[in-house]
Amino acid sequence: MRMKRPAFALIAPVLTVLTCLFLIVPIGMSILAGVTENYFVGVRSGLTLRWVGEVWGLYRETIFLSLQVALATLAVTLVVGVPLGYVLARSDSRWVRALEEALVLPVAMPGLATGLALVLAFGTFRDFRASWVFILVGHVLFTLPFMARSVAAVLSSINLPVLEEAAASLGAGFVQRFFTIVVPNAKGGVLAGALMVVTLSMGEFNITWMLHTPLTKTLPVGLADSYASMRLEIGSAYTLVFLLMIVPLLIAMQWLAARGTRTLPSKRG
């Protein structure tokens, strides 16, 4: 028994270190490969921004399109998802619960299936099919539940019905209450949801691959293209660009979450 203890105590830290390496080392390799003159030769071939420059030349349209789609997705989820989150927090009717379940379906089902369904249903609407708005539709379906739930979670943690009654007693109608009481108090959830929506939209591939056309390629679609047809350095440099776009969002999200757990007002009894 005594002999076994050290071995037992070692398993967890060793496995933890290995797991961290497994998850982090490839990212580091990818970053390095993206700025190495010749990856096959190694770092001694010199560091360069040449590949990043080539990515910019070849794929900058995808970067702009991804930003455009992400911001448009954000706009739609703000306009549609914030009110939806409010309804989810305010109502416990069966219909609202059913709607909540239904809206998660596009997230629970493989993106490929959603993409296929959209292509088969709208493929004949040529202009719609060819425009970036077609991709926007897929991204909205996929991200809407995240915004709505993030907002609903924050609103459920405060005593919203009474706050609204108080505002109504002071003369505020439904729309006034929504903008002066509901939205300001949902701010944390809206912000967290917004970061989530933008991050998900920028990284979405499974639906987008079915929806894109040669003229509407998003960043992940471009990534798949570069991995298949370009040299490793270019794929890596492109990945580096993607990381530079997405990591700040991830850090902001974690900062927000850490701040939220510290200052979240405790629910009154």
């Binding site: 797991t19 961290c20 982090i24 991830l250």
Partner: peptide
């Protein structure tokens, strides 16, 4: 812990590429 959560935001294609970097023809 933050680093460990980053891969959550990677699209599948990027994960595939990272596997190529690990176990591909020029992989680690």
């Amino acid at each position: 812990v933050s680093l460990l959560t980053f891969p959550l935001a990677f699209p599948g294609v990027v994960v595939g590429f990272l596997v190529i970097l690990l176990a591909g023809r020029q992989g680690l």
